[in-house]
Amino acid sequence: MKTQEELTEIVRDHFSDMGEIATLYVQVYESSLESLVGGVIFEDGRHYTFVYENEDLVYE
């Protein structure tokens, strides 16, 4: 089982391919040991929310 830090790094690596990240945040109250819920804001102003669970990243 991966730690929350490892899950965060996986998500950061994925989004870094889309541009320069200004902020990546995790909603700790919605996340667990198996899933990571949060959002990412890019330097150009784009903002996505995401759920990473079971090695699957869903964002909008």
Rank of each mutant, 00 (worst) to 15 (best):
E9W: 15
I21V: 09
S16E: 09
Q27V: 10
K2P: 15
L24F: 14
G39P: 00
G39E: 05
L33F: 11
L57P: 01
D13S: 14
H14Y: 12
G45Q: 05
F50K: 00
Y52N: 01
E30D: 14
D44N: 06
D17C: 12
Q27S: 15
Y52K: 02
T49Q: 06
V26N: 03
I41M: 14
D13C: 07
E9Q: 12
D13N: 07
E60V: 14
Q27Y: 07
R46W: 04
V51P: 00
E60Q: 15
R12S: 06
F15L: 09
E6L: 07
E60D: 09
E34N: 13
V28H: 10
Y25L: 03
Y29T: 08
H14L: 10
K2L: 07
F42D: 00
T3H: 05
E6N: 05
T23P: 01
G19H: 02
Y29W: 11
R12M: 12
N54E: 07
S16R: 14
R12E: 04
D44F: 01
A22T: 13
R46D: 04
R12H: 09
V58D: 09
R12Y: 08
T8Q: 13
A22F: 08
R12C: 05
E55V: 06
V11R: 00
I41F: 12
V26K: 02
E55W: 10
Q4F: 08
V11I: 15
R12P: 01
D44R: 00
F42W: 03
L7E: 01
I10S: 06
D44T: 03
I10N: 06
G39S: 08
I21C: 03
G45K: 04
L57S: 02
Y52D: 00
T8I: 15
G19A: 04
D17V: 13
Y52W: 12
G39R: 11
D44I: 01
G38E: 00
Y48C: 03
E43F: 14
Y59G: 03
Y25P: 00
E5R: 05
V28D: 12
Y59T: 09
E43Q: 12
F42K: 00
D56Q: 14
L57G: 01
F50M: 01
L7H: 03
G38W: 02
V51I: 08
T3L: 05
D44C: 03
E34D: 09
T8D: 04
H47P: 00
Y59V: 15
E9K: 12
R12G: 04
G38A: 01
K2W: 07
E5L: 09
E60N: 15
T8C: 06
V26M: 04
V28A: 10
H47M: 12
T49H: 10
S31M: 08
T8E: 15
R46P: 03
K2C: 06
F50V: 01
S32D: 10
T49N: 07
L33W: 10
T3S: 11
H14I: 08
D17W: 13
V58W: 08
V37F: 10
I10H: 10
Y59L: 11
G38N: 00
L7V: 07
D56S: 15
I21G: 03
G45N: 05
L57Q: 01
T23R: 10
Y25I: 06
S32W: 08
E53Y: 12
T23M: 08
E43P: 04
I21H: 02
Y48S: 01
L24T: 03
G45C: 05
V37R: 13
Y59W: 10
R46E: 05
S32K: 11
F50C: 01
E34M: 10
V26C: 05
L33P: 13
Y25E: 05
M18A: 04
V37S: 13
T3G: 11
Q4W: 08
V11F: 03
I10T: 08
E60S: 15
F50I: 01
E53G: 11
Y59Q: 04
V11E: 00
S35E: 07
N54L: 07
M18G: 03
D56G: 14
D13E: 11
E43M: 13
I41G: 03
I10C: 05
Y48W: 07
E30N: 10
Y52C: 04
L24I: 15
L24H: 02
G39M: 06
L36V: 07
D56F: 06
E9H: 14
K2Y: 06
A22E: 10
T49L: 15
T8H: 06
Y52Q: 02
T3Y: 04
D56W: 15
E60T: 11
G39H: 06
E43D: 12
V37Y: 10
M18K: 10
H47N: 06
E6H: 09
T3D: 08
E34H: 14
V40Q: 00
G45P: 00
H14R: 12
R46Y: 04
K2G: 06
T23K: 10
V51D: 03
K2E: 04
S32L: 11
E20H: 12
N54S: 15
E5F: 07
L57W: 04
E20C: 07
V26H: 03
E20F: 12
E30G: 10
D13F: 12
L33G: 11
E34T: 10
G38V: 03
V40N: 01
F15C: 02
S35Q: 14
F42V: 00
A22N: 09
E55K: 09
L33S: 12
S16T: 10
H47F: 09
Q27C: 08
E6K: 06
E34V: 11
S16Y: 06
G45A: 04
E34Q: 13
I21N: 03
G38I: 03
G45S: 05
F50A: 00
D17K: 14
E60C: 10
L57D: 00
E20Q: 13
Q4E: 06
E55A: 14
V37T: 12
D56V: 14
Y52R: 02
E20R: 13
D56E: 09
V58C: 08
L36E: 00
D44H: 02
E30W: 05
H47K: 15
R46T: 10
Y25F: 05
Y59R: 03
L33N: 13
D44V: 01
I10Q: 06
G39C: 06
V58N: 10
E60L: 15
G19R: 01
R12V: 07
M18L: 09
R46F: 04
I41C: 06
V37L: 07
E55N: 15
E30Q: 11
Q27R: 15
E55C: 07
D56T: 13
V51R: 15
E6I: 08
I21F: 03
Q27K: 15
T49Y: 08
L7R: 03
E43Y: 12
